[in-house]
Amino acid sequence: MLDLVIDARAAAIGPGFDVKRILPFRQRRMVGPFIFMDHAGPVDIAPVNAHDLDVLPHPHIGLSTVSYLFGGQVTHRDSLGVEQIIRPGEVNWMTAGRGIAHSERFEDPATLAGGQLEMIQTWVALPEADEEQAPTFANYQPHELPVFTDTGVWMRLIAGNAFGLRNDVRTHSPLFYLHVVLQPGARFGLPRGHQERGAYVAKGSVEVAGHRYTAGQLLVFTPGVDPVIVAREASTLMLLGGEALGERYIWWNFVSSRKERIEQAKADWQAGRIALPPNDNAEFVPLPQDKSRPAGTGGATGGAAPQALS
């Protein structure tokens, strides 16, 4: 029924700002094409310290970053000149391709002081044929993301296809990504037709096959099974998965099917060959001083920790 249960680990991304890191994990680096997952918040911090949370301009290759908020707002700026505030229920989908840099700034002190900021960020690895595409960015509004409701169940399709729902969020491989809210006692299943599937318990607790799982746990299911998820209390889940892409290497913010490509990305960032956001270029995150090699999806841990958020 379950291949693995992954407990989120604390990861510091700034002074006094820890997130729950779910993927990558030593025993399971990917679920479908999803290679990274962080859960930040709820954040409650004095407005005077809000700048400490900012994620300065940093680079990516070989992946799409996906930002989804439960509360608050974040300002995204990137090398393409895009400046986009993301709010709850929207999706920011940035495809790095051959290389992009972006920042994420927390510029609304009121939402931080009120403990409203809470977000999920994932990285979706790209198929080999798309790893070197030109970078792109898109923001999708709530009305573009279909919602389904049933007794005790509310869900929004963030990307891909599931339960007969589809939207126009551009993806590069077969996948699904859902925000699901369950009322106590509600019963729910997993979408069929996907090779790998997982359910992250963001809030509350659920029961599967007589076992209880709580907030901060990612349940990775055995292919081909059709489990019943029962909400033990009001619960929020993020369902994700899709077609496996094969081995990927990950080092810091770089993902690739080729180790040498990650080495090139390191050199490019060090040499300034990946452009900074034109409207946020006064500071940036330097390349970590880490001599380890990129870690493969099937190998032991290694390499610098990914920069979060995304």
Score class of each variant (00 low, 15 high):
L2Q: 03
D3P: 04
A8Q: 03
A10P: 10
K20M: 11
R21S: 10
L23N: 05
L23Y: 03
R26C: 08
R29F: 12
M30K: 13
G32L: 00
G32D: 00
F36E: 03
H39W: 06
P42K: 05
A46L: 15
V48F: 07
D52Y: 11
L56F: 12
P57A: 06
S64C: 11
S67D: 09
Q73A: 13
V74D: 03
T75D: 12
E83K: 15
E90Y: 05
W93R: 04
T95H: 05
G97A: 07
G97F: 04
G99T: 13
I100D: 04
H102E: 04
H102L: 03
R105C: 07
P109M: 04
A110E: 15
A110W: 09
A110L: 15
G114E: 12
G115D: 09
M119K: 08
M119R: 08
E132C: 11
P142R: 07
E144K: 05
L145R: 02
G152S: 10
G152P: 05
W154H: 13
I158P: 02
L165T: 00
V169P: 00
R170F: 04
R170A: 12
H172M: 05
Y177C: 02
V180P: 00
Q183H: 12
Q183D: 15
P184E: 07
A186C: 09
R187N: 06
L190S: 00
A199C: 13
V208T: 01
Y213V: 01
L219V: 01
L219H: 01
V220D: 02
F221V: 01
G224M: 00
V225S: 00
D226W: 04
P227I: 01
I229Q: 00
G242Y: 01
E243T: 15
L245S: 03
E247Y: 08
W252D: 07
W252Y: 09
W252H: 11
N253T: 14
K266G: 06
K266L: 11
W269D: 07
Q270M: 11
A271F: 09
A271C: 11
I274E: 05
I274F: 15
P278A: 08
N281F: 08
E283N: 14
P286M: 11
G298M: 13
G299H: 10
G303L: 11
G303I: 11
A305C: 08
L309E: 07
L309Q: 09
S310D: 06
